[in-house]
Design a protein around this nucleic acid. Sequence first.
DNA 1: ATGCACGTACTTTTT
DNA 2: GTACGTGCAT
Length: 787
Amino acid sequence: MATPFPALNQRRGLGHLFNMDLLAGLNSPQREAVTHVKGPLLIFAGAGSGKTRTLTHRIAYLIREHRVPPGRILAVTFTNKAAKEMRERLTHLVGNDASRIWMGTFHAMCAQMLRINGDLIGIDRRFVIFDNDDTLRLMKEILKEADIDTSRYPPSRILHRISDAKNNLRSPQDVESVASSPYQRVLARVYTRYQERLQAAHALDFDDLLGEAVRLLRESEEARHYWSERFLHVLIDEFQDVNMAQFRWAQMLAEKHRNICVVGDDDQSIYAWRGANVKIILDFEVSYQDATVIHLEQNYRSTQNILDAAHGVISQNIGRKAKRLWTEVEGGATLTVHGAINAQEEALWVVRKVQSLQRLGHEHLSDFAILCRVNAQSRPFEEAFMRARVPLKLVGTQRFYDRKEVKDLVAYLKVIYNANDSVALARIINVPGRGIGDVTIQKLQWLAAESNRSLYEVILDAEAVNALGRAVAAKIAPLRNLLKTLQEEAQVNNTVADLVRLVIDRTDYLEHLRRERTVDSIDRQANVQEFINAAEQFDMRMDEMEEPEAADEEDQELLRTGDADLPEGIKRLGTFMESVALEGDAEGGTGAGSNEAVTLMTLHSAKGLEFPIVFLAGMEQGLLPHARALWGEQAGEEELEEERRLCYVGLTRAQQQVFLTFAAQRTLQGRTESTQPSQFLDEIPSHLVERAGLAAANAPSAYDVATSWNRPGVSSTFRPAGVAASSSAEPPKFSIGDRLRHPTFGEGLVVNASPSGGAGEWVEVAFLNSETGKKKLVVAYAPLEKV
DNA sequence: ATGCACGTACTTTTT
DNA sequence: GTACGTGCAT
């Protein structure tokens, strides 16, 4: 085979056009990181230490000062957002050269390499990418087909295990060879079948993008030679989050020139549950014994008080690299810990605090962020903010391309692009409803599996379909015609938006949504419109890029060899779907933008962000640290340490002020429980903390809300003073059936009550006022009056 | 084939 | 408390 690879670019950069001093304004370790050129480099970049600045300046420095051709630099991130931000910042530093750098997510970079020469290891150039939804559907099908009990083997858990295997570069055979339990044997079998089905659909899942890219480099001498020769520099962001597959891939790419630069912070590793392996960053110096190690510990974000508090917490972790952030901003406001009676009161306190800080000069609501451990915490905040008429925006809830209606339309596009994508076809086979029921779909799928054909091929097989009965055949025929028409149109039509509109039109999809008389029907219709807009925007981008001056010449050459002679429209469609799969959220998606509002999000989605004022809500045992890390089956020191890192991430988001709140009672999963303040609160040096509410040192015993605070062996400085460690023997004041009155909620009936009285006594009251409904109240706290 | 009712189970989320 | 999945009845 003739080599598919062009000669490598030796062209000099255009750096002389930009005069800005790349080293100006950098501190000395940052400079060292920027100017280090040869050999492996490990940068421990603490929160707010100017990581992105260092990384972008380093790349710019390589291009401008060392004349490294931009096309021979590979810079990898985890999210599209990070890649985009980096590219933008680089454009300011090196201009158009920025567009020639190989920069993007692991998945996007791997996908690109596989599109270019996946054929060397037998991967169809036109492979499609299965997202989580696709893989879940596929897995359910497989389990059904194999008659495996889904309650004993939940599809999502199996997928998680498979993902785990792939992240560690273990094949189905590997899993099988070490299988020692029935569960593992089933797993190996299902994994094997899963891969077969993916292959049949010409599909790769997200993990395959990495795994197959590794396989490409391992198995194709030619590819390995080219790519490792090509990249003079490999840079990896958020290195604490890499998994084995990602690390191996990067290692192979960097093996020739050995210029591998990794940046990360082990203290911010919060994604172990999705395959991240902190040990990789901790062991980097073992993998590369000649690595230069640089610590960025000067923080440009927070006050020293905040950093000290954060350090108090994180330093409790054993498995970490010793380090400590510092700042020139001495002192700062003390942190506040506020204990509330329940989640509603907690939310109320936060709104009031926001309002009072606003009066003190924080005019921008965007200065405030409320960070929580789980999404379920958001409800009381939404309610409290709504009532107080303070705008609150929830970040990171449902993503645009995850919406059902959008996925339906994407599934149509997938089928048009690749009719053998049986998962996509199964999704839309009866959407909108065309009278093809589950039983029929089952039969069709069984036929497909049996004859080793795709679902589409079976549908085309008139004989097979007729065998299922006249009624079924009559329903399948229009579908067959529909798909044929759509495919034909796709050959002619060049724009994705036209195709989307055609799908919506021919399937009468909007009418289908209107008929669904649900609350979200209107939203869904709007999302369909939004999807058309997204497609239009994509088309516009493609038109702009018609003159492909962006990519390196050698990349164009590579991609040319990769281009099958497909109709323009189909090619476009492929690009569009790849962008949908790999860049989860559309620009115009939710479009919340810069609305002036308080931000509410999970600690996970807060990583990388900063806010002047941060509220950490739900600082309780069981929430942060989460119950699963504390008391769950897989609870352990490592899990607890990840929770602690989560807390650390939260604290280090704050620039000026931190408020930590907890609720003495919390209703989670329909159950109201007494809670204990988070152990992490005790890890913050007490001189940095001011206590309020139930956390106040002098809180009256009337605030004592939970006997569980007196749990033996657990001591907390956040327990109100005056609370004896022994439980009270007082008789309860209320019992089931009593009528009572509350000044705000009105009259009600006691439907449930604590068995014992005293400080911990509580009652569950059904209020006559239907708006209030049922409430659990602490007798000692709530002003209740017997009627 | 479709719709309703009941039971169960449940972090975190990017690609 | 909700959301989802299964099972039964229409």
